[in-house]
Design a protein around this nucleic acid. Structure first.
Lengths: 335, 335
DNA sequence: CTTCGGTAGTGTTACGTATAACTGCCCCCG
DNA sequence: CGGGGGCAGTTATACGTAACACTACCGAAG
């Protein structure tokens, strides 16, 4: 048995009758004016024939970097982060950067080190949500970091990119106020992160400006089932709220189910609003009125910011515009 | 400026007053009986102090492998592949294997090479769906490959792991037959892959055995919207089918929307069945009767098979059991 | 006729790590 | 008292690639 190791650039060189250096020049496209066209073709043919694939590990070692960035997302349970990835991946591809996706396990326990998990020298990290200890480990490593959907101006991120959560919240509140709603309950995600804290703060502030009482808040596990249970509690109150502001579309979908189970119609008896504009927002009946976040743009802008940091250009915090998607779950309050 | 390169094992060695070899022995936990405990502590302290992180590229180069596998999934638009990934990731972690996720861009155009994209030497690939050319490129590279959810016994996969699609299809058909349905239409995914071909073949076979006419088939783009449009066509037929067999939950959700828009109640006027048991199956109202596929198990079994291949153990094709989830979208035919 | 510059290559080295092979050294046994 | 054998380390090397520095040749300019 001939042991069958994968072919190296030296094998290609031997096969083409040139030196290994020439193979490298040709395959890296640095040959113009240094290698004759005939040899170039010979090298390419030999590489193809042997099925040569450059050894990435050796490349990274030599180059002192792998042109690889890591995208850390909290989970893949919904399509939002798939879209973020798609946006980041397209920008990465345009710039010859590899993008590796790491879905951080949501569960408790010692999360495996995302950097070890990449199994390659990383040049930078784009993180959407991370445990504090992982974050500090990263800052210790001195890796360029761009944070998505998290508090601006917080070390150790070199930059942040956020959808305009405050504006989105205001759009929802104004929309409900225009319909005449005054008793608004808040289904709040049971997650301690900036993006949800921002919704709560803006909601409270906005209702206060409008001279309305602070919202009754029900904490909910971030899932359809969690939204269902929290909505059941919220809708059992007297007087019943006429609108539910949900932190997220999953909660809103759960709230719609809860309302229906309690014999209430949406939106005739109670209005429900979501946030994020996930795919499920247009899947459920009626379709959710929600805040549409630019997921692809978020990923793309995040990766552009990371590229800027890698190039040594200073970076600020970016805020992306959002828009209100008015659909079928909002209407005038009953009576 | 001191240039600030990341510290190497040689830096750690200098700092601890030992040789680089000793550092490697200590940090790889191969020191028992070779290095005195005092030195071990000194090395560990030095490593911590300098914030040393081993260079993965150099490690991979030296070891001739990175203990990294690539998981190729078609998209992250739904939660199914997130669950597959979770299952594979947990088995990978147990075995000290890195798992890198590659969502192959669904769009047309030259797909970026998934192997280049990994930016590390790969030891194996677990692929759920792949373009033919990428597959052949891979077979040329001689990488160990395990295929998920695709035709058993097809080169160049060393093994396949599949949910029992045929059994799932039979469960659905039998369930509909028990309710007394005879006119069953098929909403077929507009994707040319084994898993959908298998549904179609089994459905036709089963109806034939039961003495029923072959199903009217409507091709649908694999999305909620696609299901909606296809269902509108299917339900416009006369006589109208009393049940819709949908290749996938997305299509089924779309079918339910279509029925409602046409003034039909589900399941009173028409029964609808899904496939996969995505999260949305229990989100929509009524909840979908569907075939529940063991997504996590699929990923886990796939990675176990890959590990076996890497160890040189021969592998067969594995079929995982499925179960029927009877929910709210099926009932007796009208009249 | 020498020198200069450009073309077409090759030899060599370094990247950081893991480990095989080696070196002392001390202790104990014959 | 000589030498065998563990202990505690070190030295040296290889992994595959990229690119710097070098050589050899050739035509043209001085």
């Amino acid at each position: 048995m001939p042991e069958a190791r994968p072919p190296t650039s030296r094998d290609v060189a031997r096969h083409a009758g040139v030196s290994q250096a020439t193979v490298s020049l040709v395959l890296r496209d640095r040959w113009r004016g240094r290698v004759s066209p005939a040899r170039v073709d010979a090298v390419r043919a030999a590489a193809r024939e042997l099925g040569y694939r450059p050894n990435q590990a050796a490349r990274s070692l030599r180059l002192g970097g792998s042109r690889t960035a890591l995208l850390v997302v909290p989970a893949l349970a919904n399509d939002f982060f798939g879209r973020v990835h798609a946006g980041a991946a397209s920008v990465a591809a345009e710039n010859g950067l590899h993008l590796v996706l790491y879905p951080s396990p949501g569960g408790v326990g010692p999360a495996p080190d995302p950097f070890a998990s990449a199994s390659a020298t990383l040049d930078g990290v784009l993180a959407s949500s991370m445990a504090a200890e992982a974050l500090s480990a990263l800052s210790g490593a001195g890796l360029p970091l761009v944070m998505l959907d998290s508090e601006p101006g917080r070390a150790p991120a070199a930059a942040t990119v956020n959808p305009d959560i405050a504006a989105g919240t205001r759009l929802i509140v104004d929309h409900l106020r225009e319909w005449g709603h005054r008793r608004i309950a808040h289904l709040a995600a049971d997650v301690d992160s900036w993006t949800f804290a921002m919704r709560a703060a803006t909601l409270a502030e906005r209702l206060d400006i409008d001279g309305l009482p602070p919202p009754r808040t029900e904490r909910a596990e971030l899932s359809v089932g969690g939204g269902l249970r929290a909505a059941e509690r919220a809708l059992a109150a007297t007087p019943r709220p006429t609108a539910l502001f949900c932190d997220d579309d999953l909660l809103a979908a759960g709230a719609c189910k809860a309302a229906r189970r309690m014999g209430l119609r949406v939106p005739e008896d109670v209005s429900v609003t979501g946030f994020d504009d996930l795919a499920l927002a247009t899947t459920v009946e009626p379709e959710l009125t929600t805040v549409s976040l630019p997921a692809e743009e978020l990923g793309a802008a995040g990766l552009r910011a990371l590229l800027a940091v890698l190039d040594g250009r200073a970076q600020q915090d970016t805020v992306l515009p959002v828009r209100l998607a008015v659909r079928g779950t909002t209407g005038p309050p009953p009576g």
